[in-house]
């Protein structure tokens, strides 16, 4: 059995209100996987639909402020299939956001968080 690296995808996500880093990380992952499609899994590597879960290995790395607050399981739920794993590290951007008083009262913080996601897709072949 050989493990082959098929694609690396990069994306960024933003949460404008509330400093929700899990949501930000989810958006980064969504952004990374949304702009591309991998027909080659079927046409070039001969995977069938049922094999996607078993044969695909997906590694997610997130860089975000407050890495400890990220709920990894929720972030991975964005990815539809594969054997998934996640690594969260300190990074991204925390920057002062809106000065609208109402927004600050509603969400408790004026900060904007930005997270980066890198997704590496491998497949197992015989």
């Amino acid at each position: 059995m050989v493990i082959k690296k098929i694609v690396i995808e990069v994306g960024s996500g933003i949460d404008m209100y509330g400093e929700d880093v899990t949501k930000t990380a989810q958006r980064a992952v969504k952004n990374a996987i949304s702009g591309a499609s991998l027909p080659g899994l079927v046409t070039c590597y001969g995977l069938t639909k049922d094999q996607f879960n078993e044969k695909m290995i997906i590694e997610v790395t997130i860089a975000t402020p407050y890495p400890d607050r990220v709920n990894g399981e929720e972030v991975l739920s964005i990815i539809p299939f594969g054997q998934k794993s996640i690594k969260v590290q300190e990074g991204g951007i925390l920057t002062p956001g809106t000065s609208i008083k109402l927004a600050n009262e509603l969400y408790g913080t004026p900060n904007i968080v930005v997270a980066i996601a890198v997704i590496t897709v491998y497949i197992e072949t015989d």
Binding site: V7, G35, G40
Partner: peptide, 14 residues
């Protein structure tokens, strides 16, 4: 933009 955010590394092998 289409080509900047991802790298199809599998092409090296294929």
């Amino acid at each position: 933009e289409a080509i900047s955010w991802r790298s199809p590394t599998g092409i090296v092998d294929l």
